[in-house]
Design a protein around this nucleic acid. Structure first.
Lengths: 213, 213
DNA sequence: CATGCTAAATTTGTATACAAATTTACTAAA
DNA sequence: TTTAGTAAATTTGTATACAAATTTAGCATG
């Protein structure tokens, strides 16, 4: 369904949204974007529709789209949902996580360590890869897709999440603790860590957004 | 983003999927569909991408799509998620449901009564309209969109849900009870009824699917 | 008979051109 | 001044044509 060109376009658009290069509160014009990215309107339309379905864009007027405005309520709902759904998926996965999976997870953690904190999109992507690799063994496509969808939505807030280096190192510690708990088959502990991991990220984000607008 | 023509195409495709007019396990060909529906491939592509994002289609090979295979596991996950998420949304809405909203809900229930049970897609649509109208007052767009998404996924199973007339009348009774509880501001009761409503629908569907494949 | 390779056929992705719809700007009337 | 209506301008939606990619079929080789 999506070849490399559209993929790039989609990634580039996300990058530019995160970096604030696209206008807020005003309709995105297909023709403008097409010229700006050097392609025709067709792949632009595809990418926009995808971003809309993923919640980064919302309807504007009758047939156009604009950036989804960010606010504390939405962020809170997102993390409350993740708190309910992700442990369900994780529980299915726990019994199926083998050493290879754990190794892959450790590799991703290491990549996260050496990545520049400035590249927020990459950090967010690696963070998702980490969790994703622990969720995949669940073999629960519908649950998994829903969780993936929620992470995509959360990624829209990446500009606010990674602002504090404090959050980053704290998050990393929780990742390590999570792997250790899984490795020692302390599944209840792992579950608790995951919930706490989600809860604390959500609380920080909501608190930050509440003071902003 | 979507005008009436694409909307029709999208509805028609869903209808034809539910009715089994499209091949399972094999890639859908854009050109074929385009000819079949008398349009060019562009709107077909739009509709297919949308249906894929909504979970009715999944990837087939490297760049094509096919009908998502139905199975008991997926259905179970869907209803377990709904059981977690919908009450969250409902709780936000309860305090904001006024008499106008209740009236609208009753109107939809009445429509459901007089609708032919054969038109499964319409029944499913009206059922969603009923719940949707009780959820909208929550004013929680992210939660709402997620719930809407889950209902869209559940709709894929409509062919199995509405097979038993028993389920239909039972569901209607629960709808009535739900409205009465809200009307009398018995919010805990309303919450219990909603959960039971979702649980029983899910259990019936999963049980049915478990005996099938 | 299985397996890997090459080329033909099919299918999807994108550009361009045009049609339909929506938005904007302007005018006229209350 | 405001408002309603209308025409012009802009913007999105779709058809057609072509390019790129993927799949299929056939053939040669082990």
């Amino acid at each position: 369904m999506h070849n490399v060109k559209t993929q790039n376009l989609y990634q580039q658009l996300k990058q530019d949204i995160v970096c604030g290069k696209l206008p807020e509160k005003t309709a995105l014009k297909q023709a403008e974007l097409a010229e700006q990215y050097g392609v025709s309107r067709i792949p632009i339309r595809d990418a926009l529709q995808r971003l809309k379905n993923e919640g980064w864009l919302v309807a504007h007027g009758k047939s156009s789209v604009m950036l989804r405005p960010l606010n504390a309520n939405d962020a809170e709902d997102l993390y409350l949902m993740r708190l309910q759904i992700e442990p369900m998926l994780f529980d299915h996965a726990l019994g199926n996580i083998n050493f290879q999976t754990l190794g892959k997870a450790r590799d991703i953690l290491q990549q996260l360590q050496v990545t520049s904190p400035d590249d927020m999109l990459l950090n967010g992507e690696l963070n998702w890869q980490f969790h994703r690799c622990l969720y995949l063994p669940a073999s629960r496509p519908v649950l998994f897709d829903t969780v993936a969808q929620m992470h995509l939505l959360c990624a829209r807030y990446i500009g606010f999440q990674e602002t504090t280096l404090d959050h980053f190192s704290h998050s990393q510690q929780e990742h390590e603790a999570l792997l250790n708990a899984i490795n020692e088959k302390q599944y209840e502990l792992a579950d608790t860590i995951l919930k706490q991991h989600i809860r604390s990220a959500g609380e920080k984000l909501v608190q930050y957004l509440s003071t902003m607008p």
